[in-house]
Design a protein around this nucleic acid. Sequence first.
RNA 1: GGACCCGUAGCCUAGCCCGGAUAGGGCGUCGGACUUCUAAUCCGAAAGUCGCAGGUUCGAAUCCUGCCGGGUCCGCCA
Length: 581
Amino acid sequence: MNLIDRKTVAEYVHSFIPYLSIDQIENLIERPPKEVNYTYALPVFQLARHERKAPHLIAKELSQKMISTSLSLPEFLEDIKHEGPYLNFRLKPILILENIYQLKENYGRMREELENVNSNQKEMETNRVVVEYPSPNTNKPLHLGHVRNMLIGSSLSTLLDYKGNRVFQVNLNNDRGIHICKSMLAYKKLGENEKPDIKPDHFVGKFYVKYNELEEQDPHFIEEAQKLLKKWEEKDPQTRALWKKMNQWAVEGFEETYKKLGVSFDKQYFESDYYWKGKELVLKGYKDGIFEKTEDGAIVAPLEETYNLPDKILLRSDGTAIYITQDIYLAYLKKKDFNYDDSIYVVGNEQNLYFKQLFAVLEMLGFKERKYHLSYGMIYLPEGKMKSREGKVVDADDLIEEMKTIAYEEVDKRYPHLSKQEKLYRAESIGMAALKFFILKISPKSDFVFDPEESISFEGETGPYVQYVYARIQSILEKSTFSLDLAIDTNLLNDDTELDLIKYLSYFPEIIDSAAKNYEIHLIPQYLLNLCQTFNSFYSKCPVIQADKELQKARLLLIKCVQIVIQSALHLIGIQTLEEM
RNA sequence: GGACCCGUAGCCUAGCCCGGAUAGGGCGUCGGACUUCUAAUCCGAAAGUCGCAGGUUCGAAUCCUGCCGGGUCCGCCA
C-alpha cells in the first residue's frame, strides 16, 4: 500500500522548493474549490518574493520543471497543472481506492496504520486522555443541553480513541448542595413516601419544579432548604437517608438516558464522596503563602495581578467547601486514577471564566498537567433560555422518544407493508441519526436555537440523508452481478461527479486528523454532507448496473469506497447505518 | 463598570484558529425530473453591503483598532 496524502505531496514539492520546509509547504497547500478537478492546490504568491517573478509564471515554470526533470511523475501523482497563480495536483485515483478498500475502517487513520506497519513502533507511548462529561446535577432530569454535551463528549472520546489515544470517559455527579436539598424539601412537604411512578429522575425533577413554585409563594422556603443543607452537612441520618434515596432515583434515571444515547463511562465520580478533600489542598496553599485570607476568613486565590482574572474564593469563611474546592481535588484524583496526559472538560461556555480560574489556581498549586475546557454554546428555545426551575426545558428523554415516533411515522408512510418489528428497528436508527447529526453538525462553539417544529427533519442536511446514501449503495452492490475487484480501469471514471467523489474520499484522513487535533467534531458531519451530496449527483447522472462491464466494475469499487468511508465516519459520531431504508 | 463569545440571503449554518480561485450548504419560495440502481433524492432559478467604519496586505468573511447590536459571566451557587 502507498501512503498518500497532503504530506506526501508537500514532501514532493519540497524537493523543488527547498527554501520552504515541508511543514511550511503542507500548510500552504489547500483544497481547491469544487469545480477544480484536482486534489490539492499550491498557491504560489508567497514564492513571488523569493523568485521575484509574477505568480502565474512561477506556477507555470514549476509545473514544467516537475514534469520534465522527473521524466514521469512520481507514482502517486496522476497529473500536475498550473492554472494562473496555482499549481494543482491530482492524486492517482486507483491508489486512493486501493487504500480505502484494503484498510476499510482504518482508512481514516491511514498514516498511523501504515507508519506502524513500517516502523513497528509499538513501544511508542500511548497518549492517555480523560474526558469528563456530562456532570449532571442530581436534582432534575437531563435536558437538551446535556444531550449536546453527551454527544460531543462521547463522539470526541470515540474519535480520540480511533486516533490511537487511550481514552477514559468519566462523569462527575454533582449530588450535593442546595439544589438537591430543594427537591428533597418539596418531596418532604408534598410527596413523602411516594415512590416513583414515572422515570425516577423525572420523579425527582417534578419536586424541583414544585419547590420553585413553593418558593415563589413564600420566599422563606429558601431558608428551610438551607437548613436542610446544614443538616445534610452535619450528617443527620434522616436527611442523609432521604438524600441517598432521591439521588439513587436520579442516577438510575440518568443511566437509562445514557444507554439510549450510547454513552458509557469508565468511572463515575460523586461529589459527595470527596467534596471536603480539596480543603486540605487549599489550606496547604494558604500556608505556603500562595492563597490569601479575607477579613472574614474565607480563602481566596489572588488572580488579578498574575492572571488578569477576577480573584476566586476557594473556601467559605465558615471553612466549608464550595464547588471549586472539590474540582481542585478532582483534578489530582483523575491524575492519580488514570495518569493522564490530557484532561478534557466538556462544559458549556457559561463556565468559561470559571475554568480559566480553576486552571490558574491549579497552576499556582504547581499542578501543571495539560487541561482543556471544551466549551460549547448554549441552546435556546424560540421563547428564550431553557429554565429548569420552571420546567421550561426540552427534556432529553422526551426528545429521544419524539424523534423515534416521528421516524416511525416516516417509515410507516413509505413502507406500510413492513413488519412492526422492522419498522421499529429502522425508526430507532433513523430517529437517533437525525438527532445526533442535527446537533453534531453545528460547530460546538456556536449557540443555537432549537425549534422543535423545524429542527426535527429527515430531509436536507440530516443524518437520514447520509444513511440513505449508504442504503442506496448497498442496494446497488446487491443487485450487480459483478463482484468487487481492485483490477479496474480508473480512466473510465471521468465524470465530474466521479472525480469529485474520489477527491472527497482522499480528504477523509486529513479531516479526521484535524477533527481530532482541534476537538472539532462537526468537521465529520460537514464532510459527510459534502461526500453524500456529491454521491447523490453521481447517482442521478451515472447508472451503475446498466453500465458496461468495465465501467460498472470501476463504479462498483468507487461506491463501495464511499460506503466504507460513510460507515466509518458515522461510527465516529455514534450513528448506525441501515442496509435498507 | 470589567472580561469573554457571537453578528454570513426571509430563516438556519460552513468557512475565521493557519488571509488566496466567482463566499459553500440546507430550510423556505418558484420551475423542472420517478414504466429506468430506493424521489428520505436530483437539476435549475430568485435571494448576500460576510453588523458598521477605518487599518495592515499584491490579496481580508478570515488579521488589527474603534463603534453598533445580541448573549454569557464576574469573591463565599453548582
